[in-house]
């Protein structure tokens, strides 16, 4: 109970909501860098996954990248990158680049796998019907396969986003900033309020992100895709 009280007290302290180490700034850092990584990863992985799903070519690439992803510990990826990125820039190569790269790299596979599976999972009879009606391959991908795959694509974005938020938190160990900063600092100062305050904030950000993607999917996905029996 002491921890709960300390956490509430820490979160309620107006001093923690302002300044260069304030919650709004750390939250902004966390969100901006997560968003940037997700965007960059999506720009590469999603077109690749959609293309592989549509053509069926190089699907082994998807399988092996999914397996590699499951085996990769985020913290190790960041640590392994440090010796190389510090060669580029001794400062940013330690506090920024390794974590940022790890975020992008780790967000890629769920985006790739879900884009691939979403499109490859579209009924082939449907695709052939579309082709037989005179739709171009491009129209089949954009007007048929992607709208049908949308729930699966949204799931991929959701898990990639959570992955990115989690990795950014770990990066605080290397001075990355963000909400993980409170956890690292709270641990070092043996300040449970600050440590668990950071934990609560990270969890809230992750859950909020999940909720946002679920709402987005509900808005965008066609009602015709919901499972329903003939009436």
């Amino acid at each position: 109970m002491q921890i709960v009280a300390a956490t509430i007290q820490w979160l309620a302290d107006p001093a923690h909501w302002q300044g260069s180490n304030g919650i709004p700034l750390r939250l902004g850092e966390h969100v901006a860098l997560s968003g940037l990584s997700l965007l960059l990863a999506a720009l590469v992985a999603m077109p690749l996954g959609l293309w592989i799903g549509h053509t069926g070519r190089f699907s082994w690439l998807v399988v092996s990248s999914a397996n590699a992803w499951r085996a990769l510990p985020s913290f190790a990826v960041i640590g392994l990158l440090v010796p190389f990125t510090t060669l580029l820039d001794p400062n940013l190569g330690f506090i920024l680049y390794p974590t940022l790269i790890a975020m992008i790299v780790l967000a890629g596979p769920p985006l790739l796998v879900n884009s691939y599976q979403g499109v490859a999972g579209v009924d082939r009879d449907l695709v052939e019907a579309a082709r037989g009606m005179g739709m171009s391959e491009r129209q089949i991908l954009f007007d048929l396969e992607m709208p049908i795959a949308l729930p699966v694509l949204a799931t991929g974005l959701r898990s990639a986003a959570v992955q990115v938020i989690a990795t950014a938190t770990l990066g605080a160990t290397f001075g990355f900033g963000g909400l993980g900063h409170y956890i690292v600092l709270g641990d070092a100062n043996q300040d449970n309020g600050e440590l668990f305050g950071g934990v609560v904030l990270v969890a809230a950000l992750a859950l909020g992100t999940l909720a946002m993607f679920v709402l987005l999917e509900r808005r965008l996905a066609s009602p015709g895709l919901a499972p329903r029996t003939a009436g």
């Binding site: 009924d123 449907l126 052939e128 019907a129 579309a130 996905a221 066609s222 015709g224």
Partner: peptide, 9 residues
């Protein structure tokens, strides 16, 4: 076609 192939969305 037999499977009709209507676009579900």
């Amino acid at each position: 076609i037999q499977q009709v192939g209507l676009f579900p969305h």
